[in-house]
Simulated assay, not measured.
Amino acid sequence: MKLPKGWKMGAAYFVMILILGLTALTYGLARLELMPKGQEVVAQGNDQTKEGSLKLDLGNPVKTEDQGGNKSQVKISLEDFPSPVRVEPLRGVENYFSENVNAYLFHAGRDYPLVEGAVIRATHGGKVTFAGADPILGQKVEIDCGEGWRVVYGGLDNLRVQQGEIIENNTVLGQIGYYSGADGINDRTQLHYEVWNGDQAQAE
């Protein structure tokens, strides 16, 4: 059997390529064995840092963590009780002179002029501690929001919540109605809105 011409040269090239490949593989394995362990730790640390950042970004923003690693809910503040409507108030938290009793009285909330029948929603969730008639504020809803915070809505009608009910933010409480017992600016329908922390009425 005759071999084709040039087979010796082809075999030599094949053997040379095989030797070069084995040499490169041996060199790479030797460098891998000699790599300092500290570099491997740094690489793992980078991966852990990225993973930790991802978990932090996706975490619950309502939770906080102190130096001891204890998690707790963020405290409620006045910023959690925005204005219930987008109109300028007729009156704020202030002392005013009442012609009915001929004396100065304390006005504990804000009065917003609204058309009769306007729907009023809760600015903060909580437990309804009162829902009914009030001699001064007409139909009133009071909500305990926790941590000593409570909200009062007066001047309502057609109440949609009941005492003892647990409601969420933006729950419909009722509609604006006219209440003849209003003291002061009482020639128009309005929402009376109070925010309390303990025994202190909160102003904007």
Rank of each mutant, 00 (worst) to 15 (best):
A203S: 14
E88R: 08
K75R: 06
L137Q: 04
E40N: 05
G38V: 08
K127G: 01
H192F: 02
V161C: 15
W149H: 01
Y153P: 02
Y104A: 07
T64C: 06
E51K: 13
I185P: 00
I166L: 12
I143Q: 05
I76T: 15
E94S: 07
H192S: 03
R86I: 03
I17S: 10
P4V: 07
L78W: 03
A118T: 14
Q67G: 11
K50G: 03
S72T: 13
Q162T: 15
Y193C: 03
T64N: 10
N46S: 04
G6M: 05
L137G: 02
E33H: 07
V172M: 12
N102F: 03
E33Y: 07
P135I: 04
Q39P: 00
G154F: 01
K37T: 09
L90T: 14
L137N: 13
Q162L: 08
R160T: 14
E94F: 04
N170S: 15
Y179H: 15
G184L: 06
G28R: 13
G126H: 05
D144G: 01
I19F: 14
L191A: 00
K127R: 14
Q175W: 01
Y13A: 12
L56Y: 15
E194H: 00
D187L: 04
A201Y: 03
A203F: 03
R86D: 15
V115N: 14
E168Y: 04
D199L: 10
V172D: 14
G125Q: 05
N102E: 13
